[in-house]
Design a protein around this nucleic acid. Structure first.
Lengths: 140, 140
DNA sequence: GTCCGTGCAAAGGATTTGCATAATC
DNA sequence: GATTATGCAAATCCTTTGCACGGAC
C-alpha cells in the first residue's frame, strides 16, 4: 500500500508526509466511479475496505489536499461539500437535480466574457464557479 | 407598522398572513444597505430596533419568503447563506474576497452559451449560479 | 373561535478541534 | 527519537424542529 510510487510522489510534492490514511484517501479519489465525492462517502469506502480511519481524519486530509492543490472542494446545493481530484484543467459543472449526475464542461466564450465583465467592474478574478442545475436526458 | 400597504400586498400576494415578524423582516430586506444579508444579520437588525423576534423565526420567515419567490437564497463561499430580495430580474454575482463587496451583473452572451451547452449535453436547465470571486478595485 | 405563526429550547447535520497515542522520517 | 498525524469524543457553526402560547382573520 505504502509503496505506490505515484501517490508517494504526489504527496511528497505537496509537502505531506506519506501516511496510510493519506495514501488510501488519494487512492479512493483516483479510483471512485464518481469524480465528485463527499467526505462521508470517502469515509464509507474506507470502512468497506476494512480500513480504520476516522471521519475527522478524512476531513483533515481532504482539507490538506485542497490546500495543497490536489483536490477541489465544491459546494453544490446539497448541504455538504464534495471533492474532486484537481486534474489541472479548469472546468465548470452541470448537475442533474434528479439523479445527481455531474457533467463537466469548459467554454472559452464564457471564460472570456467573465474576464471582460470583471475588468469592466475593476475586479481581478481569483476564482469562479459556475454551476448549472437541470434535468438530464435520462431523467426527463 | 402593520399598515404599510405595499408590504401587506407583497405578503398577501405570496399567500402569507401579515404578521409583525414578516413585515419587519421584509422591511429590513428592502432597506438594508447591503442587498445580500444573512439570517444572523437580519436577526441582529431586529434586535437593534428593539423588536423581539427569535432567530428561528427569522430562518422560518426567510425560508417562506424563498418558497414564495420573494427572496433568493445564495450560498456564497462563506459558510452561511445570504438572502436578497428577488427583484424579478435574474443576475449573477461578482464578490470581493477581501471586503465582501458584491457586484451584480447580467451577460446575455453567457446566458446564451449556458443554454447552448445544456442543450448539447441533453439537459434542461432549471437554475444556475455563477459566482465570480476576485479582488475589487478598492482592495487591490 | 379557529387556525396559523411565534418564541424558546432542544435537536440536527456537517465540519472542526483538543488531547493522548501512534506512526513517519 | 523528534516531530507530525491519527483516532476518538466533544465542541462548534448554521439551521431546523417540537411544543405550548399568542396573534391574525
Amino acid at each position: 500500500m505504502l509503496d505506490d510510487k505515484l501517490e508517494n510522489k504526489d504527496l511528497k510534492k505537496a509537502g505531506l508526509k506519506v501516511t496510510l490514511p493519506r495514501v488510501k484517501i488519494l487512492n479512493i479519489l483516483e479510483n471512485a466511479k464518481e469524480r465528485h465525492i463527499s467526505a462521508e462517502e470517502v469515509y464509507k469506502k474506507l470502512l468497506e475496505s476494512g480500513d480504520d480511519v476516522g471521519l475527522a481524519t478524512v476531513y483533515r486530509v481532504l482539507t490538506q489536499f485542497e490546500a495543497a492543490g490536489l483536490v477541489i472542494r465544491h459546494r453544490f446545493d446539497s448541504g455538504h461539500a464534495v471533492f474532486e481530484l484537481d486534474g489541472g484543467a479548469h472546468h465548470d459543472h452541470l448537475l442533474c437535480v434528479k439523479c445527481q449526475k455531474v457533467e463537466e464542461f469548459v467554454d472559452k466564450i464564457i471564460e472570456d466574457r467573465q474576464e471582460a465583465i470583471a475588468k469592466k467592474l475593476g475586479f481581478k478574478i481569483t476564482e469562479h464557479c459556475l454551476y448549472l442545475y437541470g434535468i438530464c436526458q435520462a431523467c426527463q
